[in-house]
């Protein structure tokens, strides 16, 4: 197996160590070796099987914000689905074939003209993985987790999102078996968009609640 770096990697929270443990030419690093050793010992002891790990990697790879975007676009175009989604997030996602392999439940919270929602996990990194895949590093790092619950408006402003005073901000801190997904507001001027075109406007960050969905989402990354 080769281990290559994906470009430059000064991309971590500065109070955390380098996320890439391996530094020498393709040789696995200390923690990489530890993971292999723990896994192989557990397989030798017949406590887990190699195919379970392989399958779970496929499961993880199959989950990404594109799934969540499909859910949101359906909710924007199908009022009955939207109602079911807000009543029971997990059941509505399951209708679309999205399973909850981690046995979490899902509460979908809707952004409106009066309420803006934001999700965080102050104690660890709870995140709606079945629907969005794995969270970004900043979501797991201290600054976001520490500040989202005490100064959410300042945090949102750092993402470029200014919430007017007459809009309530609601922060959802996950601690147990419930995960949260934000249903962003449908951008104006998208009345004639197809469900697929709408889904393309829904980014991961809109479903975490740090930015609104906009029609100019297709701009290239800076």
């Amino acid at each position: 197996m080769t281990h290559q770096h994906e470009g430059d990697d000064h991309d971590h929270d500065h109070d955390h160590a380098h996320p890439h443990a391996e530094i020498s030419e393709g040789r696995p690093g200390y923690y990489d070796i530890m993971e292999t050793a723990v896994r192989e010992l557990l397989i030798e002891k017949k406590l887990i099987r190699a195919d379970e790990i392989r399958r779970q990697i496929e499961v993880l790879d199959s989950r990404s914000p594109a799934l969540g975007a499909t859910v949101v676009a359906r909710a924007w175009t199908d009022p009955a689905f939207r109602a079911r989604l807000l009543a029971n997030g997990r059941a509505a996602c399951e209708e679309l074939g999205i399973s909850f392999y981690d046995d979490t439940s899902l509460i979908v919270i809707e952004n409106t003209d009066k309420v803006h929602n934001l999700i965080v996990c102050t104690l660890c990194s709870c995140y709606p993985r079945p629907v969005l895949g794995l969270p970004p590093d900043w979501y797991k790092a201290k600054p976001y987790r520490a500040r989202a619950v005490v100064e959410p408006r300042a945090v949102l402003a750092e993402f470029g999102t200014i919430i007017p005073d007459d809009v309530d901000v609601r922060v959802h801190d996950s601690t147990a078996m419930v995960r949260y997904l934000v249903l962003p507001k449908r951008p104006t001027g998208t009345e004639h968009f197809s469900e697929e075109e709408l889904a393309a406007l829904v980014t991961r960050d809109t479903m975490i609640g740090v930015v609104p969905a906009t029609v100019d989402v297709a701009r290239p990354a800076p």
Partner: peptide, 27 residues
């Protein structure tokens, strides 16, 4: 478990933001 709603101003006495801003959590 319960989903409990708190006012931000109840949690943080000098909260900067709307009096109606809130925090929701499972306890």
């Amino acid at each position: 478990y319960y989903r409990v709603a708190f006012r931000m101003s109840e949690i943080w006495p000098d909260y900067a933001g709307s009096e109606r801003d809130g925090l929701h959590i499972e306890i």
